[in-house]
Each structure stands twice: as structure tokens, then as C-alpha cells.
Design a protein around this nucleic acid. Sequence first.
DNA 1: AGCACGCCGACT
DNA 2: GTCGGCGTGCTC
Length: 652
Amino acid sequence: MYINVRLLKGFSGILTYKIPADAPPIAIGSIVTVPIRTQIKPAVVLAIHHSAPENQSFVIKELLTLETIPYADYYQPFLTKLSSYYQIDSVHFTKRITQFISQKELPSDATAEPSASCTTEIITLTDEQQCVVTFMNPQIEKQQYTPVLLHGVTGSGKTEVYKKLILQAHQQGKTTILLLPEVTLAVNFELLLKSQLINISIFGFHSATSVKDKKKLWVSLCAGTPVLIIGVHLPIFLPISNLGLIIIDEEHEIGFQEKKHPKINSKEAALIRAQLANIPIILGSATPSISSLYNVKMKGWHFFQLKKRFSGSFPTIITVPLNDKKKRKNFWISKKLELAIIDRLSKSEQTIIFLNRRGYSFFVQCKQCSFIFECTHCSVSLTLHEHNMLHCHYCGQTTTQPTTCPSCKTDQSFLKKGIGTQQVVEILQKLFPTARIGRADMDSTVNKKQWQETIRSMHDGSLDILVGTQTITKGYHFPKVTLVGILWADLNLHFPIFNAAETTLQQLIQVAGRAGRNSAESLVVIQTMLDHPIFAYVDEINYLAFYHSHIEQRITIGYPPYNRLVEIELKHNDEQLLDKEADLLASLLNDQSKNSLVLGPAKPPIHKIKNSYSRKIYLKDSEMTPLITLFSAIDKKKFKSSLFFTPNPLNL
DNA sequence: AGCACGCCGACT
DNA sequence: GTCGGCGTGCTC
């Protein structure tokens, strides 16, 4: 007996080895260690043959050790499908989940103590919650592909539904995968559920999980015991013989897409897997993605809503324009926000100031009328480059910036805009000298201790105001917060990406949800430069109305979910060569395309990272399959640049 | 990828 | 004559 294998690291060719006579049976997908030259390396089994390959010109060595992996009927087809969808090597997935096998167990730094309060209290579900559970239970039992979208307002108790379903699957001897869009959320969920579902074995499987715990999970998977696996990307690639349910929480989040290439989206992978494995999958969110809501309508996904908030009421939301001419102490703090902060300070209630800032952004705006340049083809804002050129990062269109504003005809009155959180703290300190102000953003998160300290002082009330970015919006509850100020709510709206309005609104609702859990007088102040239709929907009760108005626009412009979109990124150190190759690739794609639209090449906003330059080409079609076929037909050997293929890209 | 092997230049 | 620095090619 002979096997074909591929090494997990190093040489990428297919190699043949002999199975020793006394070896236990081997399956495709098994992990083996093999001798290669003078080394011993792990490899994955691709095929099994009864006879030696014909006219071989090399000596076949015997494999050394064998690591069986849990068997599931659909698992190999799943990996095959994923590797085709993302146009990557199928070994990639095996590589990612088995790395720990060859890793040394580090003397783990005092693993997280199991949370003190282990409450086993039985919570009675509301009618809304029970309705979902009643529907899902038979689907778990029947083993049927059932996609379910759960729209539950913040604080409506989605977690209680998840817990019930996990318990139900467990009682039937089935494993559940629970995915969250960030490692920190996964860790929090892990701790929470470990204290509340004490009869179920719960495993985290993500970058923060120790090698020791990964090995424990592997043993459990090999034994086929029903467990709960929590993570972000990795759990969906695991071989699981008794997988019965997949839960995706915060399903609208773009964090399910990996940040570096290949940009696999574990929500998509989960949907593919649920389909092949014939199991139900439930996607929950307070602000479901446009794409999932579209699937409810077009693909018959089941849809449930939780409309009642358990405790607390919804806050009052007001929108304040920043572009008015009214005199105020500081441009960034409106009178209404200033007065509201003064009021909270006097009552010793807390305030969160949120700056909707993603990295550093600059764009051009008219001083007089706040007009911002946008691309005529893509409904995204234009970015200013050298020589007064305005670029569209989506389609590559370039125009010279006019000297007069196209909207109000004022001459030479343009501003380049930008603000950061440090500046915000400075401004607030000047306006409110006695206030105790803390800052929590990516810059200060690098220092983990300081982050923890800031969160702690916010909790115990030794801070009055917390200034922060995205990072403070998720997973933290500060009961004494009765005011949330959003400094520049429309900032992300001008990001040159088709889903800017959607993700901005989702974030605003998320931030607004930080206020008023316990107080009826909670207030959310939304400051904006320009008015925009989305501000009518920040009250989460109106969220579905946003979908109905926005889907029309997506259909008109022809972007997802109405059409499929893929991104091809080219990278090379030599910018001239890269430009040549990007043009070549675009023309090759155009030549070979039947009905697919080829956009670009465009220079992305960040087109130079670590001395490597980048160009992007986008493909659009009503179906994904022709786009994958189109890219796979390209002869990659023609290119010195690296090519990266991303179906359904969600960010820049 | 990573290692062995081989070619060549420098140093004792 | 021998050590070692690095370029090239192969891995079952």
C-alpha cells in the first residue's frame, strides 16, 4: 500500500510513501510524519494506492508515524469546496488546524481561573425565545440544512436561545460550533458559558488557546464526544464526526473575514459546511447584514425576531449637525453634547465619547456647504492624491479636483479633514477641567495592562468620561453610562466601499446600545457633518426599514448581495512592474470574461505596505461560479507579482 | 522551506 | 591544503 502526501510546511509537491505492513488503516486526510532527505516532517494524506507508481525513478521510503483524524462523511468534500471557492491549496486548512500537534506544550501562564459564580439557574424563556427553540429542535434532530436568521434587539436575550440550543444538541450527542467575530468576544463567551453550562465540555479554539487545550480538544474530537467549540475562524475547519449545530453570533460583523490573505470568511465557510453536513445553522444579530436579510427573501432562510428588551429601556436619540455656523467653544463638541456632559458630571453619571474612526483618513470637503467629492460610478467618496487628483479606489476612475465647489460654486474653499482620539481627550480636558477622562483605543490597547486598568476604573466609577473607538463598543457593559456621544457619525460613510452605510449604521446602533440599559433618561447624541438617510434608522426598532430602503440602492448599483463581487489583489516590490502586470491581468480577464464585469486595476487607499505595492481588480457577476472559473483560468506563472483572490470582500 | 552539496576565494 | 560563505537544485 502506498500513499500520496503533501508536506504541511516546505516543499509543495506531491510525494509517495509506502505504508508499513503492520500499520493501522489510513484514511485520506490523515496526518502522517514522513522522512524527507535528512529530516522528518508532518504531511497530510491525499490519496491511497494499492500498487507502486509506474516507472518510478526514485526510492520510496516508508512513512514513520500516523495520526488519525476524526472522520466525517462530508469533511473532505467540504475542504475541496472551500479550496475551490477561495482558490487556495486544500492543504491550507489542514495546516491551520493541526499546527499544534507538532508544537511543544508551553508551561502555560496560569490558565484563566474558572469564574467563581457557577450559576445553574434555569431561566424561563420568553415566548419569542421559545418560538425559535421550538422550531430549531426538530431540525437538529432530523439533521437538515436549515439556515435561520435571528434578529434580536440588544439585550433581548439571544444568548439564552443559544444556550438552550447547545444543550439540546448536546442531549442528542451532537457537537456545536459557536463563532464570534473577535477573539476577545470568544474568550468572554467561553468564560460565561463555562460557568453556566457546567455539564458540557467547552473548548475555545483560536489564537489565544494554549497548545495544551488544543490537544485536549483533539483527543475529545477523536473520541467523538459531544462538545461545544468556541472560536472565530479555526473551529469551522476542524474535523468533527458528530457536528449537529452551528451558531454565528454578531453575524453582521466583518470580523469573520480574516485580515490577511487568504481572506477566508468563517461565516461563509460555516454556511457551506452546514449545507454539506446537513445541519441547522443559526445566525444572530441585533443588526443583521443586508446580505442575510436578502437571503431570507431570496433563498428562503428562516427568520425570527426578538423585539423585547429584558431590562432597561431604549435611549433617546438626537442628531446634531456639526457643519452649522453656530459659535461654540470647540468645533468637535456641539452645544447639546456639551450641556449633556455637564449634566452627567453633576449627577456623577458616566459618559462614553465615541469617535467613529478607522485608521487615519483624509478626504476633501467644502468649507461652505460640507460637500464631499464622490465617484459617479460607485457611490463612494474620492480620495485626494498628488497633483490635485481625485481617485476612486473602487473602479480606478481619476479626475482633477475642480477649483470651485460643484455644489455651492464657492472658489478655493476646500479642507482636508482628520481627527484622532488623543485630540478628543485634549479637547474634553480643556472644556471640563475637573472631569476624569480615560482613553481606550487601538493605540492604548497595545498596552494590555493599561487597557484593563482603564476598563476597571470605568467600571468602579473612578472615570467620568471614556473616549474610544470600535474596541469599546463590544462586550462591555457599564451600567452607570447614561450618555453616549458620537463625535463624527458620518465619517465611515465616506469610506470608498460599497457597504459603508451598512457597517456605519450597525456600529452606530451598537454604540447607542451602550447607553441606557438601566436608566429611562439615557441619551445618545449623534454629531454629523452631513445629514444622511441612515440617521433615521439609528433607533434599532427601525432597523428593518433601513434594509428595505437600502437594498434598492444595492440593486441599482449592482453590488452585493444582488451581484457577486470578488477582489484580486496584486502585490510586488517593484511598482512599475506591478502596474504593468495589473494592466496585463485586467486585459486577460477582460478577454476571457463572458458576462463578468472587470473593474480596475485601481490603486487602493493603502497601496504600499512594508515596501510592497498593491493594486486591486474587482470582478462582478450575478453568479460566483463564473468569477471563480475566470480567475482559475489565469496562468499565475506569467506573473512575478503575488495574486490574492478574495470572494465577497468586506473591507479595503 | 530547508538542507546538502559544490564551487571558489581567503587564510595558515 | 583546508575552512567556510553563499548560490543552486532537489526532496518520494
